[in-house]
Write a protein that binds this DNA or RNA. Structure first.
Lengths: 148, 148
DNA sequence: ATACAACTTGAAGTCAACTTTAAGTCAAGC
DNA sequence: GCTTGACTTAAAGTTGACTTCAAGTTGTAT
């Protein structure tokens, strides 16, 4: 079962031009062509593109994804390279998670700050708030995120 | 207590040119200047730059950070705008967390895959693995992440 | 056979977020 | 007073990841 670039783009919810760009960057070396030169995508190709999208969302640049792909096609001699790249990316994901955690805490604090201000009609309400009126989980943050 | 752009850049672990760029983009409207035109950063400015960095790492574009800043300077009339922007960003962070969670699971699976392959010296080892030899947490993923 | 939408390519354009360059100014130490 | 390193600006260059354009081809439906 084959799909055209338009069909595959729709399945993946990306623009056809994006897939052509990936192809040009060597990220789709196994996609077959019809006798007339039209790309014929397989379900297998979608698998790889889903993996690609996953790595991309984890912040991996296309160049590194390309390296990983090239290594995969070179066979068993590159297993340790691939493992190393994956470990590096895993570390990066863990750091990003930590960062998002911190940011979420900050956003939650700010949200409470502005919700309170909205109810009062003014940010000045926070000048006259005793520590007991600040929800416990935010007390440590009032000092840290004063500005803005 | 004032800092030069170089000192502040060092404290924040960014390039001085980055801070000049932020200034040009209207993200540092409150940074004072010496009589000779040299930027004089305060601790307060660092607070804001830390907040900016936090929002940036959460994927907020500088334009939106600029909006938030402008609204903050306009006073209480913009509280709801600010709240709306923060809620939107909070939603975005939650989605990113979910995405990273999925990616981490995939990376953990791939890591196991290549660690096993490395020990065996070949990826072919996975062809002759019974389901019981696959750690339980990865069994559902063998089908999902076959490629690469 | 012809129309027509969807495909093809290479090249150029876009966008965000910086970085670099060039030419000049400021300020601290000698 | 002079040197020197860090600062100033405007403008141009870079990078990554696409998108758009122009000109042409393919393949399906009538």
């Amino acid at each position: 079962m084959f799909y055209t670039i338009g069909e595959m783009a729709q399945k993946l919810n990306v623009a056809p031009s994006t897939l052509r760009y990936y192809d040009k960057e060597g990220l789709l070396p196994f996609v077959e062509r019809s006798s007339g030169g039209i790309r014929m995508f397989k379900d297998e190709d979608m698998e790889w593109l889903r993996l690609l999208g996953c790595l991309k969302k984890a912040g991996m640049p296309l160049k590194e994804i390309r390296s990983f792909l090239d290594w995969s096609r070179q066979g068993d001699a590159t297993i340790s390279h691939r493992l190393e790249l994956l470990e590096k990316q895993r570390q990066s994901v863990l750091e990003q998670q930590k960062q998002l955690e911190d940011t979420l805490l900050m956003l939650d604090y700010k949200r409470w700050y502005y919700q309170t201000a909205q109810e009062a009609g003014t940010c000045a309400v926070h000048d006259s708030l005793t520590p007991e009126q600040v929800p416990e989980q935010f007390r440590a943050l009032t000092a840290e995120w004063e500005k803005g």
